[in-house]
Nucleic acid binder design. Structure first.
Lengths: 213, 213
DNA sequence: GACCTTCTATTCAACTTTGACTAGGGTATG
DNA sequence: CATACCCTAGTCAAAGTTGAATAGAAGGTC
């Protein structure tokens, strides 16, 4: 599974209502086009698929206010919100797939501080388990160097997993030390969304509240 | 670009002639199914595409010697060999995409020792350049912590790139110290291919020689 | 010998990703 | 005021990926 659905759901959710181009710009702003597959086609495809599956509700063809073709706007449904949190939790515990993890970190503050830490700890457990199974599998009969240069591949993966675990521990520490504002806490929640030119100021403050779960 | 073409070309090349199931087993043996997309469908698709593009030559429908449906065998063409080395060089210099790098390492001994080192050094240069551009882009006006938790994402990528560069330096050292047998050197080249049950012993020794370039 | 499992070998439909393309409108330039 | 260029917004065909399904043969077992 790629990170695109999580990214798109998260972007739309932050706006309350958004069209494809807005999502695209946000993801670019976050640098997601560098570390994930956020080509235009993928974004529009994800929007359409998720609309078809009821995760998003599509408002057809609002005429563009700034040139270009008419645009379709989307809103996250209840079902979509559930999926969002499910994907988010999955992303934060995933061992492989740096892009998933990155997307998860981007939205981590939508969870409570405790849950964030719990999930990150689970991630470390996952890495450690994987590490054991891999090193067990690859240290068979005839000495360590019977693998030749192929051994380098395994070392690379194990090493990078170790570093990932170490980095995660650091993040947990920072979070436990009080860094950042999480869901349900006082202070400005970090938005990190590109401002829309204020065409309809009175519509800009719909509270799209926290998770029910 | 994914690693599958390189992996498939490399696997077929090592056998001289191979059918899809053989390739699949090799990739599994190398653990490539863990770190790359080597599902059966992808392998057969890659074989067919590359045959269509003239990188492989297909020998239609050799009847299976061990049960199952008849199988199609493939051989790497001259054009395919050129593509193989091109992909291999690209893989070893790629900054992102761990799976590409892993595949590249798997076939690195098909290059000369000097070229291997050169490419790995180029890889480090690439990482360093990328690092600079990223940190420049993400250290803008209002202090470092204006990014909020989004900064964690950048730190993660930069950190993992640094670790990747460091690991590459270690590999270069080992190679320069004489580890492994590279193309054109004395000693058994590492094969790491699953032995075929010797059905046609006299066909098993076709020399599929080194690169012309 | 009927049945079940395993191994061999591949195909297929559904889905996702990619990169190039379309097209309207604004804006600067000569 | 024509033309070139960029920004907005999205579509599309081709390619790649996935997971499940298919199907023949061999081997065990009751």
């Amino acid at each position: 599974m790629s990170a695109i659905r999580l990214l798109v759901l998260g972007a739309v959710r932050r706006h309350g209502r958004a069209h494809g181009y807005q999502v695209r710009n946000d993801l670019e702003f976050w640098g997601a086009d560098e570390w994930s597959n956020t080509k235009p086609g993928s974004i529009y495809h994800a929007l359409k698929q998720m609309a078809k599956q009821g995760l998003l509700h599509a408002y057809e063809s609002a005429p563009s206010t700034a040139g270009g073709p008419p645009r379709t706007e989307y809103e996250v449904t209840e079902q979509g919100t559930a999926e969002y949190f499910s994907l988010l939790r999955e992303a934060l515990t995933s061992r492989d797939k740096m892009d998933l993890l990155a997307a998860g970190i981007g939205f981590i503050v939508d969870l409570s501080r405790e849950e964030a830490v719990t999930l990150l700890r689970r991630r470390i457990k996952g890495i450690e388990g994987w590490r054991e199974s891999v090193t067990a599998y690859y240290k068979p009969e005839e000495g360590p160097e019977q693998l030749g240069h192929i051994g380098e591949i395994m070392h690379m993966w194990v090493h990078s997993a170790d570093v990932g675990a170490e980095w995660t521990r650091g993040l947990i520490e920072r979070i436990e030390a009080g860094a950042y504002i999480f869901a349900g806490e006082d202070g400005d929640p970090f938005e990190g969304v590109l401002a829309e030119e204020h065409e309809n100021p009175q519509e800009a403050c719909g509270s799209h509240g926290g998770e029910p779960a």
